[in-house]
């Protein structure tokens, strides 16, 4: 498997660390334990498109959102969590 890091280019998956669902990006703004617990623990398990987080640990250390398909293994997009325009 290969991922195209926006900063480093196409790299073997051994350079990356998998984290999980990209829902972790939308952290609840209040401190309601139920909202937090759902956000932290409840996950869909789709056969098809997913958005998940990868960390380019053996590369530029960027956190990435990878949109891919769990059925076809196609990788649709790889984007920086921080946004390309971050300084």
């Amino acid at each position: 498997m290969r991922l195209t890091c926006p900063l480093c280019g196409a790299r073997d998956r051994r350079e990356f660390t998998y984290q999980g669902d990209a829902i972790m990006l939308t952290r609840p703004s209040n401190d309601d334990p139920t909202a937090f617990s759902d956000w932290l623990h409840l996950r869909d398990n789709p056969a098809g498109r997913t958005r998940d987080l990868w960390y380019h640990e053996a590369g530029c250390c960027a956190w990435l959102v990878v949109e891919r398909d769990t059925v076809t293994h196609a990788v649709h997009s790889v984007a920086l969590v921080e946004g390309e325009d971050a300084d």
Binding site: R27, G83, D87
Partner: peptide
């Protein structure tokens, strides 16, 4: 910890 700091910085502390 390094991975975690990168995460918090890039995901929650942009800018």
């Amino acid at each position: 910890v390094m991975r975690h700091l990168d995460w918090v910085k890039q995901a929650y502390a942009q800018g």
